[in-house]
Write a protein that binds this DNA or RNA. Sequence first.
DNA 1: ACTAGATATATAACAAGTTATATTAATTGA
DNA 2: TCAATTAATATAACTTGTTATATATCTAGT
Lengths: 176, 176
Amino acid sequence: MVEDVVRTLGYATLGSRLKRIGEKLQAQTQELTEGLAGTDLPVPHNPVLAALDLHGPLSIGDLTKALGQSQPGVTRMVNRMKSDGLVEARSDDKDGRVSRISLTQEGERLVAHLKATLWPAAFLAVQEACAGLEGPLLDQLAQLEDALSEKPLIRRKPVAPLPHWSSFSPSEEENR
Amino acid sequence: MVEDVVRTLGYATLGSRLKRIGEKLQAQTQELTEGLAGTDLPVPHNPVLAALDLHGPLSIGDLTKALGQSQPGVTRMVNRMKSDGLVEARSDDKDGRVSRISLTQEGERLVAHLKATLWPAAFLAVQEACAGLEGPLLDQLAQLEDALSEKPLIRRKPVAPLPHWSSFSPSEEENR
DNA sequence: ACTAGATATATAACAAGTTATATTAATTGA
DNA sequence: TCAATTAATATAACTTGTTATATATCTAGT
């Protein structure tokens, strides 16, 4: 049997390790999405929806900052979401370079649905998987990775009635 | 100003968060690679070299387990490394389906070089960035992300003489 | 010995991230 | 006011991860 080299090497491969766990979490969140929200929204599109919901219309540059990733990546994701009918772009009146991205009606509807289903469920499931993690980062990562293998997010759906997303993020409807 | 939505959402976006930090670490490790080992070896190829160095020749399936990623991904990475002259494949004598991947002489040479330069330096730099992290996972991630922004790995090169990789991974030359 | 199924790897198509560069619009300074 | 610079977004090419599927070889059972 061959051991997990990326785990063994510790700090030397922390980057690969973080990416790997992140991808596992996203894959399990995708299962949740289908099983719980009944859509096939790609997991990385959720933060875009959340940012637009929190702040109202944003430029590509603002989204870049909100998501912490590169501008071309954001542009492409937004284009995809545009062709999916979730967002729309209009160029700014003051500055013709900037394109203001906003939720369409369909986007608003989806957000409302996600706030009642996927978002709280994912939050709680991940929170449960992280409950009891302790110690140095590498140890917590090992514990989390094991926890996700042993009991994936889809089996951590809360039994009690799902709280609405607003109870996690109280300040959301301000900037509209 | 727009805040960091992925950070704000906490557990709900932990997958994106982990991927994002992982990519940042890998990008900074790439800088280290060029500045310190004088090669342009892609960061994700390091664990493959380390696995082959630790265990000697491995099948694609074994590498898949060692790296914890999908078989087609491993196959493609190995093909790239083959065309870079770092590894070679011969089909197994007993079982014609399995292809045994081993380091070429050039691969061995590169590994020896990396053990004296990049691997210990990256280990120590990441360890330093992680020193003092405390508390729940989300907190430690926030601290780490801030630490990497404030002082990237390339500025954490140890001043003292670099210890050899073998001092981090004492059991390495066994399975050859 | 042959067929069925299982196993190992390869291939194809896609997604999402990156960097580098092109394009377009706005700003600034002579 | 216009030329040069700066700034925002778009486009292109690449990497690395994925899933689904094809191919090739081995193994088992009759």
